[in-house]
Amino acid sequence: MIATNGKDTIGLTLNVWRQAGPDAEGAFETYHLNSVSTHMSFLEMLDVLNEQLLAEGREPVAFDHDCREGICGSCGVVLNGQAHGPDRDTTVCQLHMRRFHDGDTITIEPFRAEAFPVVKDLVVDRSAFDRIIGVGGFVSARTGAAPDANAIPVPKEEADLAMDAASCIGCGACVASCPNAAAMLFVSAKVSHLGRLPQGAPERDERVVAMVQAMDGEGFGNCTNVGECEAACPKGISVGNIARLNRDFVRATIRRR
């Protein structure tokens, strides 16, 4: 059992961004929690906060969540300036309170980007990602019935790299952590995932051009290769995918019919 300072519970001060709606003015509110179990996940701690707020007859804090297993991409907030909190390769639902110390102050903010408008409190609208996927993040070729396993040979290394890219859960932490609110890591993961596989390769050029155009149209920033996206990504998507996206985009521009 891991406990902080030898205790199983800690006291925390939370500065939480509260915003009643998309057009409402937001502000930070401060809350105190006296006995937070160090075995809780961060979202469970927010559940406890909401129980306390409800008991006091106040509005609970809205935040996104679903699987709480780190695989769905629903959750995501910025803790003390870090998307998904201080740990690498970890979604905020998998972050545990043992990571914090008794008496800590935690500032909790929504992912901030013009392309991710705040819906309420810590919930942001990430449908910009859906629209980018909608213009090419899929394979449209009719393939008939499911082919036999291994009927289409895929080199092991390519399969591994495609799977690495496919592990992107679309949470938006790359945008939240990027100093320019760029979505290059997300788009590059989708483009690499599909473009590396034989099923997705035929539409590689059209896909990359359409998805980059959609990305630009949503108002994301430009990549300056700082690398904070890779560090914040709970799935460890490599910035090498961004280099590959850049290559693909230039190549598609030249050879696309």
Binding site: N80, G81, R88, E228, A231
Partner: peptide
């Protein structure tokens, strides 16, 4: 300028996971 437009509301706490440094920022 486009990058500034892409995030108009700033974070209260500016954090890093170790990749931001003086030259790249």
């Amino acid at each position: 300028m486009e990058n500034r437009e892409a995030r108009k509301s700033r974070y209260r706490v500016r954090g890093t996971k170790g990749e931001a440094n003086l030259p790249n920022s």
